[in-house]
Simulated assay, not measured.
Amino acid sequence: MKRLYSNKLVIFSLVIPGILVFVFAILAPIALSVYYGFTDYSGMGKATFIGMDNYKQLMMDQVFHKSLLNSLFLAIGFIVIQHPIAIIVAAVLDKLQGKAEGIFRCIYFIPNVISVAVIAYLWKFVYNPDFGLLNNFLKMFGYTGKINWFSTDLAIWSVLIVLIWHGFGWGMLIYYTGIKNIDPVLYEAASIDGANGKTTFLQITLPLMKPVIQINVTMAIISALKQMETVYLLTNGGPGNSTQFAANYLYKQAFKAFKYGYGNSIGIVFIIICLIVTVCLNKLFADKKEVA
Rank of each mutant, 00 (worst) to 15 (best):
K8L: 15
L74A: 07
I103D: 02
G45E: 12
L72P: 07
Y249F: 15
T144Q: 14
T218E: 06
I272K: 04
I30N: 02
Q253N: 14
T39R: 05
S151T: 02
Q214R: 11
Q244V: 12
I79V: 15
K99F: 12
Q62I: 09
G267I: 04
F141I: 01
I215S: 08
N196P: 05
V92Y: 13
M52P: 11
M1P: 12
I272L: 13
M59Y: 09
L27D: 06
G51I: 06
E101S: 14
A189E: 06
R3E: 14
S42A: 14
L250F: 14
T235L: 09
F12A: 15
N70H: 03
P29H: 00
Q57P: 01
I174V: 15
Q253M: 15
L72M: 11
M140L: 15
I215Y: 12
N148C: 05
K139M: 13
Y232F: 15
L206N: 08
G102R: 13
G267R: 09
G263P: 05
Q203K: 15
Q82T: 00
L58V: 00
A117M: 12
G37C: 09
K139R: 15
N54E: 07
L58G: 01
K2E: 01
L14D: 09
I179T: 03
L20D: 05
V80H: 08
F38S: 01
E188L: 13
T243K: 04
P17S: 03
C106D: 10
G169L: 03
L250V: 06
L69G: 05
N264K: 11
V162C: 03
A247G: 05
S71K: 07
L160F: 10
A91T: 11
M209Q: 12
I147G: 04
S33A: 14
M219R: 07
A25H: 07
N54W: 10
F258K: 09
A246Y: 09
S67G: 02
S67V: 05
H166S: 13
V185Y: 09
T199V: 12
I276M: 08
L173S: 02
G37Y: 05
K66S: 14
M219W: 11
N54I: 04
A75T: 06
L206Q: 10
K210H: 11
N241H: 14
G261H: 11
G197W: 12
L9C: 08
I81F: 03
Q214P: 03
N112Q: 14
V279Q: 08
V162I: 04
C274V: 02
I79Q: 05
S265G: 10
A247N: 09
W149S: 00
L20N: 08
Y175S: 02
K180M: 13
K2A: 03
Y251T: 01
V269H: 07
G145A: 03
I114K: 03
I221N: 04
I164C: 04
L122E: 02
Q253L: 12
L69H: 06
N7S: 13
Y251P: 05
M59F: 14
F255C: 09
P129H: 07
A155T: 11
V10W: 11
K139P: 01
F141P: 00
N241M: 13
N70V: 02
Y35D: 00
